[in-house]
Design a protein around this nucleic acid. Sequence first.
RNA 1: GCCGUUGUAGCUCAGGGGUAGAGCAACGCUUUCGUAAAGCGUGGGUCGUAGGUUCAAAUCCUAUCAACGGCACCA
Length: 664
Amino acid sequence: MEALKTKNNMVQITLPDGAVRAYDSGVTGMDIAESISKSLAKAVIAIEIDGELSDLSLPIEKDASISLIKREDDKALEMIRHDCAHVMAEAVQTLFPGTQVTIGPAIENGFYYDFARNEPFSTEDFDAIEKQMRKIVERNSKFVREVWPREKAIQFFRDKGEMYKAELIEDLPTSEDIKIYRQGEGDDGWLDLCRGPHMPTTKHVGTAFKLMKVAGAYWRGDSNNAMLTRIYGTAWRDQKELDTYLTQLEEAEARDHRKLGREMGLFHIQEEAQGSVFWHPKGHIIFNQMEAYVRRRLQDDGYNEVRTPQLMHSKFWKASGHWQKYRQDMFIVPDVVPNNNEEGPVYDQEPKEFMALKPMNCPAHVQIFNQGTKSYRDLPIRLSEFGCCHRNEAHGALHGLMRLRQFVQDDAHIFCTEDQILSESIKFFTLVQAMYKDLGFDDYKITFETRPEMRIGSDALWDKAETALENALKEMKIPYQVCEGDGAFYGPKVGFIIRDAIGREWGCGTLQLDFNLPERLDANYIAPDGSKQRPVMLHRAALGALERFIGIMIESYAGKLPLWLMPVQCVVATITGEVDDYAEEVCAQLKAAGIRAELDIRNEKINYKVREHSLAKVPALFVVGAREAEEKTVAIRRLGSDGQSVESLEKAIESLALEAKPPY
RNA sequence: GCCGUUGUAGCUCAGGGGUAGAGCAACGCUUUCGUAAAGCGUGGGUCGUAGGUUCAAAUCCUAUCAACGGCACCA
């Protein structure tokens, strides 16, 4: 390519294919598009300048690499959604005068906008709002970007009664321009404070959007502030994409673990024990299998399993700091024997001493560590427990198996020296990765969460802890997301996050580095020089709460769990009553081979049995009729296939038993 | 905890000021049948709970509880 000379008033624009063109300084994305082709100018909706999305109308005043974004590009989705939020806000303010606007970002699959209004919206308003939105889109107004003086902007919104917007502007850093986007004609056009960028006109929003739900949301995410009304919507490039999304959503809702749990007879929750699970026989098989699996993994990774008290004196929780931070969410009981009468307990004296159901296991594990004298030679000590914990979670937080008041963690605490932090962390990350792979999860997010505002321990200690933990992550070369301020009150935290059927994220595995609790609970070991030293404590759970993990697995597998976890692995179903004896023999042999098998010799047609067991998600159906009994075979029908294969009984059992082996 | 929605048989849902209805499931009888629902019959609910209005409430009102969707929280 011929080298281009840069003149003072020219900028060099590098296109995605590497071509460099010179334009007058102040050239806009639209100018560039027009200079390339008319059709491109028609299709383009935004420009990426040095990797940052911007308005097509923004003048470019220095050399840059750019890429023109068309409406069909993936990157356009975010803009369609953001613009759609603006269109919705205008629609709402048109239909409901007096409603204040606050913020309205694009989110995954759509957008939302938070409104302040005395009367909350209801889904019955959606039709009218959507209709108004379509009018605004059809109006095809330009999105015009304006930069206002700060004071004018504040005054303008105050005069309009938009106190939230005025507050937002006041809090913007003074270095930042106050950008206003107008989407109507003239001075009366609807406008909003916005960082941008936007597409050229409202028409680009298109028609593939739908309002989804209303919800409450606190102003600025703070529960001390006013509650606003949030309207969620979804928006796509075309109707087909929207339809696909809505269908997916419907299918995902059918995988809801609460629905499947009931249908498959796994568990239930009732209001007399809200937030706690009644595991039914079938569900408890899954629970036990998971626990056994974890136990095998931990045993081979050098852990020692323990079991500690449910109720412990409050002094431990005070010493650990949990009392100070979490006592509102703890189940606390007086440490005296009351007279229990019809109404409840009666105390002769006001109780002064208290016990608490353990909300977590760490202080108990420290008590075990503290028994006897520990030498540096003993470290690391890894104490594991299927710890049953109780937390009095807020009502609104409870969610099926995902968020409970009573749950079992695959918890463990590793007591080690500072030198061992890196190797122990890596050992744990390796274990978690192997376990998630075993269980069929390769899509999970890893977070690195740093010191929160409410915390114990000195900043120096936190510096040390955060560096050590982050180093372990870096050493493993795993991509992770930093979440400032999200750590535990005693130390920084790595989180393993998995999504449920409809995309909600749930924290599962975790590793927390803690220099604080050993200090507070006076844990120590004898160092090589004979001095007493504090061990470091690693709090870790691979799956987290077993209940939650099982819930996620149910959703992820749509109830069709791996064979080793399925409560009923095989049903032997007869075609006629004449082969009952053979069917019983088949079932007995399956059980002898370690398969969880059931017999179905009911007087029902085979079609009926096949349908019923398929709906119950029985992974393998062994059908036997006169032919099979005669030949000592079974007709195998596997869940999800509509055909069947006939195999000798021996071979069928052998291959099923092999498949039913747990992954570890 | 906050905002909104919902709460009728085991499940899915209809109804709606005059004293409860369907399908599936359950139970009984008939049918012994070759890969996703055989036929007939029977039983089952005081409509989340507590008050109130009314001659009369499941239906209207109030309170309350729970579930659901978000928000906040999540050691």
